[in-house]
Design a protein around this nucleic acid. Sequence first.
DNA 1: ACAATTTCGTAAAGAGGACGACAAACCCCG
DNA 2: CGGGGTTTGTCGTCCTCTTTACGAAATTGT
Lengths: 410, 410
Amino acid sequence: MMSRELVGQRSETVRRANLSAIVRELHARGPLSRSELVARTGLTRSAIRGLISEFVLADLVSEERSDPAGAPGRPSPLVRPRADGAVVLALEVSVDSLAAALVGLGGKTLEHVRVERPRGHLGTDEIVGDLRGLTDRLRLLPAHRDVLIGIGIAIVGVVRRSDGFVKTAPNLGWRDIPLGDLVTAALDLRVPVRIANEADLGALVELRRGAARGGDDVLFVQGEVGVGGGIIVDGQPLGGVAGFAGEIGHMPINPDGLACRCGSVGCLETETGEGRLLALAGQPPDAGRDGVTRLLAAASAGDPVALAALDHVGSWLGRGIAGLVNMLNPRVVILGGLFSRIHPFIADRIESQLDRYALAAPRELVRVAPAALGVDAPLLGAAELAFEPFLADPAVWLGPREMLAAAASA
Amino acid sequence: MMSRELVGQRSETVRRANLSAIVRELHARGPLSRSELVARTGLTRSAIRGLISEFVLADLVSEERSDPAGAPGRPSPLVRPRADGAVVLALEVSVDSLAAALVGLGGKTLEHVRVERPRGHLGTDEIVGDLRGLTDRLRLLPAHRDVLIGIGIAIVGVVRRSDGFVKTAPNLGWRDIPLGDLVTAALDLRVPVRIANEADLGALVELRRGAARGGDDVLFVQGEVGVGGGIIVDGQPLGGVAGFAGEIGHMPINPDGLACRCGSVGCLETETGEGRLLALAGQPPDAGRDGVTRLLAAASAGDPVALAALDHVGSWLGRGIAGLVNMLNPRVVILGGLFSRIHPFIADRIESQLDRYALAAPRELVRVAPAALGVDAPLLGAAELAFEPFLADPAVWLGPREMLAAAASA
DNA sequence: ACAATTTCGTAAAGAGGACGACAAACCCCG
DNA sequence: CGGGGTTTGTCGTCCTCTTTACGAAATTGT
């Protein structure tokens, strides 16, 4: 708004882009030999050498002799991203739990804590305090503190991407909360904080390290109390004009459906959310995670009521996904959260609904799979989110340390 | 599949990117002074000078003394994209008509022909022959032929983006047609051919030159016999894994709805397509464009049946758009084709449906507007599509002419 | 065990391209 | 008509990758 994006490039831009390409490959794929990096980037050996040596100097990667595994010729040293060379703090505010993790470059989880939390509305002070408590329980060594490059937060709610402003979080009873600022103040860690919706982050990490690995177009459908979605197009998360995109739970799908808490009627969420599933199975809608566990046990035992409830959810979910497949033409649809748990019972139903309601062309190309990273997907996605600025321009972190503070304030 | 994308950059990449940035600005905004280009790109005067002079040498732009209009200081020469320096051939295969145009750099339409065509299924030979006839009717001067850099085609159907393969075109009765190859063979113009869906191209041109100008996130909703959609995210058309994305017409929206020709039930198209509108107004569903004209006349005269029919379409369309707004968080929704014609009668209805069914956060940010470029939007979008490779890497066209042939075959 | 082959790392020279500083050109204003 | 301000043109400098040549380290063959 205030200033048009400057698109001009200079020699330095090239270096930055190449550094970024290298560290992205290492972060995503793990250790690679120098010659593999040459092949992957298309740069020459000389160029790779110079760029790698800069990372080595900054203690971000280490080089070691690779296993001389049968191949002729001089072996290429293995370049390994150092998990203790750059770390991020990942936080998650979910429906049933809070979590924190320390994740190193390359994606290794160094520390991990998750605690249950009671459902229902909680004040921001309380949540932020709990997050601080969780963070304190991580063994945050001074060495880690020195190389902390960012904080990522996954939250059940609608988040403005630019500044981490939480527009609404119905499960928490929040509206218009500047969560980024609150967390920054509470944690006293002078690094950038980035916040996004749980489903968006689930999509991100499933793309990078999970069931959608290697693909570029992913739809992540997260079921909890609500139903959320994360959309990735050409490898980039779809944010929309303010980062609100992905709210597939409130796609109108059944005009004769029930009233939704969003004010609308017959949303996908009212037909497929946890509350509806439990109610159809004859349980109280707020029976929560344990209720679902009981329902799954009943279904496994062949209980017709439970199976019918699952079938209802699978049918409507399949129908909703069919519309999304027509619209977005994804390579893979990933079911997370609740939908991941009930996947064995609804998989066939979803496939048959796709056959029926989706157009042939996109339908042939799409695959439906449960989340590979389970409940931690959003948390790990928050870590990826926090790494993103570093991966996009590692040059900032290679220079003198003062630049980090400058980047934090920007 | 066969080769991983090579991400390494070199000095030459910088030049290419900068040339691209300059020609993009000129194509999108028209003539700009050199100093404006300096401001827009962030490059230095020296760099701009060198890059511009290359374009001048290739006759792609001309420099002229600018009007000394009040500003102090030495006047900056005006850099004008030359409409006769690079041209594209745009073709359109629509429901009711065929069209061809010759469009020059900067977006100026040099030649333009549109002919009605009878609805119904037509063989590919016939359509391709007609396109050739239309092209012949354009005054394609030898000078134009020499600077022709591409052909773009807009078609009512589902198109694989990579190679212009038409998967299905229900209005034409086509399945699996290699239209790109057919047109290349028929026209004997040795330039690349790119093909896309009408709505996608409508979205593209409305973004660049129409009602969505300046925005980055656009949803184009095209109504004809069918209902199509074009989605633009962060300035880039959303294609999905094979370019099939955008088929919003077959989003399931009413489980109690009518059977759709796609095999599904209760698609958005069955509630809002031209056939349904006409049927509700008591006309034969195939009354076509003229039928709509009569309907609009009746509605203007206050005919309650016509108004009710429009209200039905507006209601369902608004409901469908609400879901899309939740999901995509666009800045602007543009109504094209049929929906553009009936916009005055359904605008209020759509707004009220958005208030009711869309989430507050994205709803506040979105604006609904009729297409500014009318029926020619897809045709002009096809021109933009054809320009795209040139805009992305103009360096290819600055070198010796042989490179063009190489690019065509690649 | 030793040479041939293959693959890789290192270093110096070369090339592409933008930046920066200077002087000249040009316009407005008083 | 002259001063101030802005822009252009030119040339030298800097940055970064590529090219080329050579030495090092491993496998294969005899």
